[in-house]
């Protein structure tokens, strides 16, 4: 079980929650379970969400493991210049 923190706009799509506990071993499973438990999050996941694990931002490595006790923070997927 990991605790996932959502940024403001994403929290609104998850029924106003800012933190969610999810049983997930990696980012792929996290996204799948978030979409199952909170259908409002699915369009956000499809548009792109980045995951910060202990401060390191992952945009595409969905196989990245979510270590127990680590800080998991969901962020908008950003664009660069």
């Amino acid at each position: 079980m990991v605790e996932v923190t959502l940024w403001g706009a994403l929290g609104a799509a998850a029924g106003g929650k800012s933190k969610i506990d999810v049983e997930a071993k990696d980012i792929r499973e996290l996204f799948r379970k978030l979409a199952e438990q909170y259908p409002g999050l699915e369009p956000h996941i499809e548009r792109g969400i980045a995951v910060a694990i202990d401060g390191v931002i992952y945009r595409d490595t969905w196989s990245k493991e979510l270590p127990q006790g680590s800080e998991i923070f969901l962020l908008p997927r950003l664009v660069g210049g």
Binding site: W7, A52, D54, G55, V56, F73, L75
Partner: peptide, 9 residues
């Protein structure tokens, strides 16, 4: 803790 959320390395 950064102003945008995660804790810095």
């Amino acid at each position: 803790r950064s102003s945008y959320g995660p804790v810095y390395g």
